[in-house]
Design a binder for these strands. Structure first.
Ligand code: FES
Ligand code: FES
Lengths: 145, 145
DNA sequence: AGCATACCTGAGTAAAACTGTCAATTATTT
DNA sequence: AAATAATTGACAGTTTTACTCAGGTATGCT
């Protein structure tokens, strides 16, 4: 039961993007340097984030990526959805209507319920919150010196 | 974010074991036939379930497996713990005290919180409940004919 | 125009994990 | 002794993951 590193990177990158962007585009190179994630790998992730309507791209010099909408309206589960296939814990439930086994499968309710819990939790966290948390941590660390 | 089939099989097998055992041992062969899981794969799983104190084994003819304690005291998360390594969604939290990154890592709280939700949910379901649910489904299906 | 920047794309690859099998052994009952 | 059934460890095929590489395209600046 592991979250792929792809998802972990994506969330980190998004927080970093939001943290250092003040209206202007942030280049992947910068995020790559700050978060120690390979540039080419980041490119791969951001293609998916863009398709998932999480970010917008600006080409050319001075370009980079911007949030597609306010951080308050971006939920963690949406970020993960964009880069990964599924938050549902079992393959047989990938279809929209869940697993057909509904009637006879003994463990259906276990996986279905678990999937909902996971979804609900990740949907309850916004990028805005994470970014604010990051700012606080940063300030605390600064205060100690 | 997938539960391995190992975990899925283990839960199914445990429900089946409890469903057909009335104090007497159930052989893996029987479970294998009823649940269409390869016998040799079941063997692999039950070695781990035994080590995890979920079941007891009885050797020789008429032998098989028994619950190590009442079904009411067996939680789904314990079954999964036995056959799988970890319910924690990220590798860096495998150690007992969680991830050291506590202070500087921005996404720590996300994964930590998620891990707790998953654990809580699976711990809230007992084998007893699942078995009862299975009996109900069986009876309903029977009623229709 | 020409150059630098930075996004964009698809193919490819090494390592790990997953899923399952095979062969051989040990313990117990009849 | 013979049959039953758990027990063990090694092993192989497949899939997924986590990346890299080699190009291309769009844009702004001088
Ligand atoms: S087979 Fe899909 S949940 Fe049971
Ligand atoms: S590095 Fe482990 S949670 Fe951040």
């Amino acid at each position: 039961m592991r979250m792929s590193t792809k998802a972990q990177y994506a969330v980190r990158a998004m927080v970093n993007l939001n943290l250092y962007s003040e209206g202007s585009p942030v280049s992947l190179r910068d995020i790559s340097l700050r978060e120690s994630i390979s540039l080419t790998y980041l490119e791969q992730l951001f293609v998916k984030l863009r398709r998932g309507q999480i970010v917008k791209s600006v080409r050319g010099p001075g370009g980079g990526y911007l949030l597609a909408r306010p951080a308050k309206e971006i939920q963690v589960d949406e970020i993960i959805d964009s880069v990964e296939e599924s938050l549902v814990p079992v393959a047989c439930m990938d279809q929209k209507h869940g697993c057909v086994c509904d009637d006879h499968c003994v463990t259906h309710n276990v996986w279905h319920g678990l999937g909902e819990k996971i979804r609900d939790f990740l949907a309850s966290i916004t990028l805005e919150e994470l970014t604010q948390e990051a700012r606080n941590k940063f300030n605390e660390a600064k205060g100690k010196n």
